[in-house]
Amino acid sequence: MSAPGPLPAQEPQGLSGPGRAERRRAAKGRGRQRSRSAPPPAAPSRDRTAPSRDPGAPGRPLTRVEARRAAKAAKDSPAVIASRALGELFITFGVLMLLFVTYQLWWTNVRAGQEVDRETDKIQEAWAKGREPGTFEPGQGFAIMHIPKLDVVVPVAASIDKEKVLDRGMVGHYSEGKLKTALPSDKPGNFAVAGHRNTHGEPFRYINRLKPGDPIVVETHNAYYTYEMASILPQTSPSNVQVIGPVPPGSGFTGPGRYITLTTCTPEFTSTYRMIVWGKMVEERPRSKGRPDALVG
């Protein structure tokens, strides 16, 4: 028998192929080949003016075309400019109208109140000095009217001139030309006066509230003349001068007497028509006897 030959060398179980050191060297070689074959990364562009690929990117600089379009869009169109100018015009007009209304409804009354106080003091000082009245000049105060129900105390001046009398807050006596009427002392006679209903003191604003029997007292340098309201004509034409005649048609008076006529504009805040209030004298009281009952209490 022949002796058994040597057993073939056996590889360790679970391992095959080249050894560990050889595999490590092979892996390094492949890594060097990849790095040599891969292209280098692109360097970032230094051109800051180059537009971004994303047109909606925030902070992106605009191109010339885009900048021109944006500037054009930012400009106001003619319609916008016109509407803005018209709006400013309306605002200015509204402010001016508000100032005018304030002047008419408030400031004219303030100024008229000051004028009335000064004229009343002047009349009373003249009476206190015993000065006998002569011919009254237009705008000159000569009497004081009291309407107790309306809490009205207002000077009466010669003439119905708007600037000299009515706009100063006073009541004007029809004392000139064809419209001349009697004084309270005349027997008989119709003492006719005019006054503003609105603005400038508005002494006759509420004369439409007077009722038959309500007293109207005219105070002069030597007497108190007390009238009682008799009737009212709510509306008539400004040209109807018969309402201040000696015996006014529509007043209810049937013959000559001692009357008073108050005239003012109507409707309120217009001068389209005239409102008329008539009264009849019921007492003439010398100042030496004191104030009449209508003014006492």
Results as ranks from 00 to 15, higher is better:
residue 216 I to E: 03
residue 226 T to M: 06
residue 255 G to Q: 05
residue 222 N to P: 06
residue 239 S to Y: 10
residue 177 G to W: 12
residue 213 G to W: 01
residue 226 T to N: 06
residue 250 G to L: 04
residue 268 E to Q: 11
residue 210 L to P: 00
residue 229 M to Q: 12
residue 210 L to Y: 00
residue 172 G to P: 00
residue 222 N to A: 13
residue 206 Y to K: 13
residue 232 I to M: 15
residue 271 S to H: 11
residue 216 I to M: 06
residue 211 K to S: 14
residue 204 F to A: 05
residue 189 G to H: 03
residue 254 T to C: 08
residue 235 Q to F: 10
residue 224 Y to F: 10
residue 178 K to Y: 12
residue 184 P to T: 07
residue 168 R to W: 06
residue 268 E to N: 11
residue 272 T to F: 09
residue 273 Y to M: 11
residue 236 T to D: 08
residue 238 P to Q: 07
residue 220 T to N: 03
residue 241 V to G: 11
residue 192 A to H: 02
residue 215 P to E: 03
residue 194 A to C: 11
residue 253 F to N: 02
residue 211 K to I: 09
residue 224 Y to I: 00
residue 171 V to I: 15
residue 226 T to P: 06
residue 218 V to C: 06
residue 264 T to I: 01
residue 271 S to C: 09
residue 261 T to K: 04
residue 257 G to V: 04
residue 167 D to H: 14
residue 273 Y to S: 14
residue 210 L to M: 10
residue 214 D to T: 03
residue 221 H to M: 10
residue 192 A to E: 04
residue 233 L to R: 11
residue 271 S to T: 12
residue 223 A to R: 04
residue 263 T to E: 04
residue 247 V to I: 09
residue 261 T to G: 04
residue 179 L to F: 12
residue 254 T to Q: 13
residue 189 G to Q: 05
residue 217 V to D: 01
residue 174 Y to P: 02
residue 266 T to V: 14
residue 174 Y to G: 01
residue 185 S to H: 13
residue 175 S to L: 09
residue 253 F to S: 04
residue 195 G to I: 03
residue 213 G to N: 06
residue 189 G to T: 00
residue 273 Y to T: 10
residue 240 N to E: 13
residue 257 G to I: 01
residue 269 F to E: 08
residue 188 P to R: 02
residue 257 G to S: 09
residue 246 P to V: 05
residue 230 A to T: 14
residue 179 L to I: 08
residue 257 G to K: 03
residue 224 Y to W: 09
residue 211 K to H: 12
residue 229 M to C: 14
residue 204 F to G: 00
residue 198 N to V: 10
residue 198 N to A: 10
residue 205 R to T: 08
residue 261 T to Q: 04
residue 260 I to T: 03
residue 212 P to R: 10
